[in-house]
Amino acid sequence: MNSKPQKIIINADSNQYQNWKLCVKSKFKTIKSKNIEIDCENFDLSCSDILELIAIANESNCKIVCFYSTSSKTIVSSQSLGYRSHFILENDSYNTLKMNNKDLNISKADFHQGTIRSGEYLDSPGDLLILGDVNPGAIVRAEGNIIIWGRLLGIAHAGSKGNARATISALQLRPLQLRIASKVARGPKEKPQLGLAEQARIDSEKIIISQLESI
């Protein structure tokens, strides 16, 4: 085995197998390097999916060095587990994916890189992925989910057109105020646990915050 990283791709092909994990397992069998880069393309992987991937890699004595994905969910999951993760902008892959797979339904995601500062405002007609902090005094809003790869200290409103299933996720969730659809909540006072990503969603008519399992 050499150590030059080799790439394993998890994509729509993998889906033709009953279980994509089996497919990945077989791909690991043919691998010649110790260091693996995983390209998840547009696959949405939760934290527990990624933990399983890590276990599969360990079985083959391989180490996952980083993740690539066009899915913001996958990126946040892998990042929250401490992996180097590269977000590939939809624009590049979107068209190729569409060509290969006409009926693939990819929801629109807006991507913002950098700190959102006091007085600034972001609004998205789909999901909103932010790579950076949302500072006190800033407002972010999306018709879909909001995913913040950083700290949420300002105000976030997910499901702004009424989608009550929308969620707000962040590496640190300490907002001034949270809104999902028409529900409003103030942010928690106590300090967050380090290293755990958190998610807010509506459960029995109330906004609750829990440790991020899957987005």
């Binding site: 950098g114 959102i116 500062r117 006091s118 007085g119 600034e120 500072n135 006190p136 005094g137």
Partner: peptide, 12 residues
Amino acid sequence: VRDADRVIGLLN
């Protein structure tokens, strides 16, 4: 600090 943050955003 809040106002400084606003200004930094504009400078950026």
